[in-house]
């Protein structure tokens, strides 16, 4: 089993074996973090471009750290610091990058489908760091890694995702990835954020928070994206917190070993109560550490020439 693909654009088209392979390698990289020297030289001389067409601090830093720990050369450009303006096509951008002979592109873009587009145009591997409301595969992978560290095999395990499912790329990547690994996913939020057709992705839709979390092994609480205009889907932060906020009261109804995840950054006392965010059930910092490891694993697995001619395992 190897990662025989050029790009990672989403978890929708990744097989369970591929996901497990990435997580396997990621756990090897996590071991590297505990050493005095927290980098390995494998990507020395390779250039990775981080193209962030939408602002993001956490994901960009996580990717940068992953690339640095692989000893890659890094070029960052984001809308704020470049001359890319509205109207310039992604094709122009892609052709420029191609001409500069980069080895890999990490792209964050506000338009759904933009990673797919760049992957089609570019010869080098493309990693989707979040496209619009579509997918955020590295977040999905790090969430799954965090769950597996605590739950082991995810078959039959119950994961409840709470928030604006309709506009969340994190939700979609979680749903696809968890589904492939056999977890039972429930999504929860007001109907304005959880349209009924979400059930067609193979998840259970539950509008009542207490019922949604009662049997859960994990809660994955999404950030309410006020900036995405999702605000019209609920009357306000206070009401959201009252109806869907994960508070101490909610936590008390959980299974004793159930734990809580959040992709960050948190809106404290909106989707998650401060006491819960700082409480013993959350594993948010594990998620952050796993994020770097997962990204290292993907960058490593996607690097190296012709994806059709991967070395057999013995070659190492």
């Amino acid at each position: 089993m190897s990662l025989k693909r050029k790009d990672v654009l989403g978890l929708e088209d990744m097989a369970a074996e591929e996901i497990l392979l990435v997580l396997d390698i990621a756990s090897q990289f996590r071991a590297v973090f505990d050493r005095p020297v927290r980098s390995v030289p494998i990507m020395r001389g390779r250039t990775v471009v981080n193209f962030f067409h939408e602002s993001s601090t956490r994901t960009r830093i996580s990717f940068e750290l992953a690339e640095k720990r692989l000893s890659a050369d890094i070029v960052n450009f984001s809308v704020a610091t470049s001359s890319f303006t509205k109207g310039e096509t992604l094709r122009d951008t892609a052709e420029n990058l191609q001409a500069m002979k980069i080895d890999m592109l990490v792209v964050r873009h506000k338009s759904s489908g933009s990673a797919q587009y760049l992957a089609r145009v570019l010869k080098c591997p493309v990693i989707n760091a979040g496209d619009g409301c579509h997918e955020h595969p590295t977040q999905g992978l790090l969430d799954i890694m965090t769950m597996r560290q605590r739950l082991g095999d995810l078959r039959g395990k119950r994961v409840t995702i709470i928030g604006d499912i309709a506009h969340s790329r994190v939700a979609r990547s979680n749903i696809w990835g968890l589904g492939k690994l056999g977890a039972e996913v429930t999504v929860c939020g007001p109907p304005t954020m959880v349209p009924a057709n979400v059930a067609r992705l193979g998840v259970k839709v539950e509008y009542d928070l207490k019922r949604a979390v009662a049997k859960a092994d994990v809660l994955n609480i999404l950030r309410i994206q006020l900036e995405r205009g999702a605000g019209s889907g609920f009357p306000g932060n206070r009401e959201y917190h009252r109806m869907y906020g994960v508070t101490e009261d909610v936590v008390r109804t959980l299974k004793p070993e159930a734990f809580i995840m959040h992709p960050g950054p948190m809106n404290r006392n909106v989707e998650i109560a401060s006491e819960v965010a700082d409480g013993p059930r959350q594993v948010i910092l594990d998620q952050v550490a796993n994020g770097v490891a997962v990204r290292m694993a993907l960058i490593y697995l996607l690097s190296g020439g012709d994806p059709g001619a991967l070395a057999p395992g013995e070659a190492a």
Binding site: M1, S2, L3, L21, D24, I25, Q28, F29, A31, V32, V40, P41, I42, M43, R46, L70, Y300, L301, L302, S303, G304, G305, D306, P307, A309, L310, A311, G313, A315, A316
Partner: peptide
């Protein structure tokens, strides 16, 4: 495990088998 220290990544591509150090 020397997988992440190999100098032949461009020749052989990444190895999907990584052991622990």
């Amino acid at each position: 495990d020397i997988t992440f220290y190999r100098d032949d990544l461009s020749k052989l591509g990444p190895s999907p088998r990584v052991a622990t150090t």
